[in-house]
Structures are given as structure tokens and as C-alpha cells.
Design a protein around this nucleic acid. Structure first.
Lengths: 218, 218
DNA sequence: TTCAGTTTTTAGGCAAGGCTAAAAATAAAA
DNA sequence: TTTTATTTTTAGCCTTGCCTAAAAACTGAA
């Protein structure tokens, strides 16, 4: 059984590995976890002892298969609980993160199996992120950033990269949510900003927005 | 916000106050929490500093109103989650305690309010224990121990005092659960053992069993 | 290749929450 | 009322997970 702190480190390192190639730096972990690099070094050394990650002084770390498995199980729990909060308790998708941060550390295999069934074995959480299965495997999906689309291309919103509530509320105001169809009416090459059509409405969006919205093209 | 350890102490002291009159002794807390008396003294002094309980050296402790309120809110969460596990996830009443021990420490007012509504604002948990409201008030109920009944008296099972899984499984084997009607066919004065009728079946039960089952007489 | 800047690690400390061993207070028995 | 047994507290130590300050290692520009 692993402590709350250990689980959080593994989860964070997992996410950082996704975001970029190569090992994960001490500073990157510290920044993401809002802690100090020296604390990270401490913990990373302990986790390396337990063979949950590989660590070479000054060279960063990478999860081992067993470390990755634990990280995936924490992420699985986090996302299943988010589905529960939104689907069953009618929470809004911008309010669930902090609560799921707590719920993800509840230890009970059976609980999660039953929760998964109760929710209808969902494949994605309310932000469109994939929910790994018991073994930590993610269903492969082909999604791209809205910013990658060209003029006149269409896409369906399948997820968000940024999950802060300001961003989610920005999307809400424009009626953009998972499943929303988006048509690129125009794109400015200089700054990457776009004009998009959502339902009957047209919006101007900056490149920063377009870079945080995942779409699937058909 | 209070730590997991603090919440557990307050909860335990609350329960011990119910079980007997007068202050709660250091040893009693230690035994219930499976910790050492010296650790209890430490924590009790800290909680007294925070005015969550009254403490006089060598004289035991008693919760203050604010300590009692926190304890009740932890108990409320514990019992609501137990209802969730049994009603929604089909857990058996003897499996839910350990999981609820973890879930009771999730901090979110809104979560509990919504969970309560989702469950239909239950008044009792799966073991028949009353669920306090937001303000920590319990609905008054009149229940007595089965052992207090005399020959030929009838009662409806409304709760259990002991919630260990051996005991609950003992009851299951005899089809006794919350709501079951019980008739006392005979009672031995020497040892308090009884013969009871449950549906079409008759059982011999020892005083120890009768002292752990709450019934309501009509 | 050298040196300045950055990143990372080490060393030493702190708070929480637990423990053991020993001392002090209380309660019970003679 | 002593003496003995029990309960409770104190003192000192340990682990976890964090911190600051200082040292060490890396990196890139001159």
C-alpha cells in the first residue's frame, strides 16, 4: 500500500512523462506539485528504492512498469470519481477536480470495480480524458488540437487540455462541451487565432484557446 | 480544517461518550483506537488547546460543543457513504465499514449535501444507526436491546450495536436484518439466553447476541 | 576550455503523530 | 492509613514529508 504523498508523486510523474519525451526533471516535478526541488529529490530517491521509478542523480527520473501501473490506477480512480460527481451528483465539470483529488486515494479494489459498473464502464471522464482499465491500459484515441485544423475543416470536441475553471467556464459561455461540433470558418496565420462556428453562433477565439481544445475529425 | 488523526480522535471520543456516562478515559480511547495511552495524552492535549474538548489531567476528557459538531459531521459522512455503498453499489452490510472509514474524511460540504439528496435523505445507515443532519442533530429514536424484552414480547430489528462482520454474518444466516420481526418465545433467566421466532424459524440465541441487537417494540 | 548561470543534491531542521520507558497521580486493598 | 496496583503523564526518540541554506554537478556561451 502506498501513501498519499507517494501516489501523488507517481501520478504527477506519469503526467509529466506524457507531456514530453525523455526523463522527467526534478524541477518540473517540484513546479507541478507546488513543492521544493529538495523535497522532490528526497521522495524520488525513496521511490527509486522501492523500484517504482528509475533515478540517476542529476539525470531525472522515469517510471518503471510497476510505478506506471500504480500511477494509472490513481488516474483511473480520479477519472471514475469525476464521472460519478458529474453524472450522478450533477456537479459541473469545472468543480470536480479538487474533490476527485481526494477520492482518488481511497483504497479498495472492489469499490472501484463496482463504481465502474455503476457508472456504465465509461471510457472518458467529463473533460474527455480517457479512463484506463484495471491494468492501466488506455484506449487509443485519435484526437488533435483545434489549433491544428485548417479553414473549413470540421471537428467534434472530445476533450480539453487545460482543466482550470476559468477555461471551462469560457467554453460553457460559448456552449462548447464534449461532443460539440465545431467548424473553422477562418484562421489567421500571424497569431493562429480563429473564427469558428458552434451551432448557429460564430466566435473569435485566440490561439491559446485553440491549443487547449482537443477535437476529432471525421 | 482538521487532520485525519484529529477527526478520528473526535469521532472515537464521541462514540465513547455515548456508551457511558461521565468523562472519557485515556485508556478507553487508546484501546478503541488501537494506539498507546501516551499517544492519546499527546493528542488530547492538542485538541484541548484547540478547544474541541475539555481536559483535566488524570481526569479524562469530554467534547465541547464545537468538538461534538465535528465528530457528528464525520459520523454523518461515514453513514451516508455506507448507505451509498449498500444501496447504490450493492455492497453487503458487513463489508462497508473499512471503506467508509476512508470516505468519511473527504472534505467537501457540497459533496455531502448532494450525496445526501442522491440517496434520498436517509435517516438511518445500513446497520440501523441514525444519520445526523448537517447541524449534528440526531433524530430521537426509541430502541431497546433485544435482551431487554421478556417472553412473548415482539420487536422489530432496528439496528445492531456490534458491527463486526462475524456478527453480521451470524444474523444473515438467520435471516435477521433491519426490519425483521422477532418474537421472544422463551428466556432463560440464569444466563439471559433466548429462544426467538423469526419468520417460520426458531433459534436459540445467547445473551451476547441479544445484547447486540436493537429492537423497537410497538 | 573555462567560467558564469542553472539545476540538483546534501545537510540539518521542523511539525505531526506515533512509540517505549520511567515517573507521577490516583484508586484499591490490607 | 499505609501499601500496592492501576492509570495517566512526561521525556525522549523515531519516521514521514516538508523546508532553507549551502554545496556540488551540469550546461552553454565566450
Amino acid at each position: 500500500m502506498f501513501s498519499l504523498a507517494e501516489e501523488n508523486y507517481l501520478k504527477t510523474i506519469y503526467h509529466l512523462e506524457q507531456d514530453s519525451v525523455g526523463g522527467v526533471s526534478t524541477n518540473a516535478i517540484a513546479e507541478r506539485m507546488e513543492t521544493k526541488p529538495s523535497s522532490v529529490t528526497d521522495m524520488v530517491q525513496k521511490l527509486a528504492e522501492k523500484e517504482l521509478l528509475l533515478y540517476k542523480k542529476y539525470k531525472g527520473t522515469a517510471l518503471t512498469p510497476s510505478g506506471r501501473k500504480i500511477a494509472a490506477s490513481v488516474i483511473r480512480k480520479h477519472r471514475l470519481w469525476e464521472v460519478f460527481l458529474v453524472d450522478k451528483l450533477d456537479f459541473h465539470w469545472d468543480e470536480v477536480h479538487e474533490i476527485a483529488e481526494q477520492l482518488e486515494h481511497i483504497h479498495s479494489e472492489k469499490l472501484i470495480t463496482r463504481l465502474d459498473n455503476f457508472l456504465g464502464n465509461p471510457d472518458f471522464d467529463p473533460h474527455g480524458d480517457p479512463i484506463p482499465d484495471k491494468n492501466g491500459n488506455f484506449k487509443a484515441t485519435e484526437k488533435k488540437l483545434l489549433s491544428e485544423l485548417r479553414k473549413k475543416q470540421r471537428g467534434v470536441c472530445v476533450g480539453v487540455r487545460e482543466t482550470g475553471s476559468e477555461f471551462l467556464q469560457y467554453l460553457d459561455k460559448r456552449n462548447i462541451t464534449i461532443g460539440t461540433k465545431i467548424l473553422v470558418l477562418g484562421k489567421e496565420f500571424f497569431d493562429g487565432s480563429m473564427i469558428i462556428q458552434v451551432g448557429q453562433d460564430q466566435y473569435f477565439i485566440s490561439n491559446k484557446i485553440a491549443e487547449n481544445l482537443y477535437v476529432q475529425t471525421t
